[in-house]
């Protein structure tokens, strides 16, 4: 028997709710009210999330996002800006006392990212962990991950790119002035890949990849997955956090 882990499949949801749900799960696991939890989800409408320490107006073209109907949200985790469009997103929450938890951030990324590497391998994509927080296939980034620790728990969330539209992404994100926009976009195109680029259009199906990622975590981390729905308490807390924290201009623009 592996480590029991609750699995939540929460489908596509708006950015503030998605971040609210990740934090709600963290609170529930921390309180001992829920098992360690693995969640897969997507974003509707598409969204940009920025890292906890990033400056909103330095990273995001707010007007362009508004015109394109793209949400903006600040995460509770560090890391960089992410355009959540065609991807599978996951989050994993476990207590620091869990045998899979590592005290050191880098070790922790390495252990938890092994689930993604294993899931991609089952799809036929040879990938590897690239410190600090990326996973690469053929030397190109296919997954980015971000982690925090609160209330004696680890929360790591991350993305697996199903497809990538770098031109659209950079119509929404700002580019450091030191680097020419065109050059940066070409660099990123060369450094990023996706499930679709690796396997073709049919391979980049959300449900198929989400299933593979869950299986990958189960195999790599020896998890016994128990499918469940979010609790009433989590749903209520996620809604509150979405409305009062992640959807608030004060939080989004706090740097």
């Amino acid at each position: 028997m592996g480590f029991p882990f609750r699995v939540l499949k929460t489908g596509l949801a708006p950015a503030a709710w998605n971040m609210g749900m990740d934090e709600a799960i963290l609170h529930q696991v921390a309180a001992g009210a829920a098992l360690p939890t693995l969640r897969v989800y997507g974003w509707q409408p598409p969204a940009i999330s920025i890292g906890y320490f990033q400056g909103l107006d330095e990273e995001v073209d707010r007007e362009a996002c508004c015109r394109a109907g793209v949400d903006i949200v600040r995460r509770i985790t560090g890391g960089g800006a992410v355009f959540h469009h065609q991807e599978v997103t996951y989050s994993i929450v476990l207590p620091l006392s869990h045998p899979l938890a590592r005290p050191n951030i880098l070790d922790s990324y390495r252990v938890l990212c092994s689930g993604i590497v294993s899931g991609l391998a089952s799809l036929g994509i040879a990938a590897e962990f690239a410190p600090i927080n990326d996973i690469v296939a053929g030397g190109r980034k296919i997954s980015g991950n971000a982690q925090t620790r609160k209330e004696n728990c680890i929360l790591q969330h991350g993305t697996i790119l199903l497809d990538v539209d770098v031109d659209l992404m950079f119509s929404l994100l700002k580019v450091p002035q030191e680097k020419a926009r065109g050059k940066l976009i070409e660099d990123i195109k060369a450094r990023v890949t996706s499930v679709r680029q690796c396997l073709g259009k049919e391979g980049a199906d959300f449900d198929r990849v989400a299933h593979a990622i869950l299986d990958g975590f189960a195999k790599a981390l020896d998890l016994e997955l128990i499918e469940a729905a979010p609790t009433e308490s989590e749903l209520e807390m996620a809604g509150l956090l979405a409305a009062q924290k992640f959807g608030s201009p004060e939080w989004t623009a706090h740097r």
Partner: peptide, 15 residues
């Protein structure tokens, strides 16, 4: 001073 970027610092609030 304000330091921004895509780094990680945990706990974030202590930054």
């Amino acid at each position: 001073i304000q330091i921004r970027g895509d780094f990680f610092a945990i706990p974030e609030e202590a930054f």
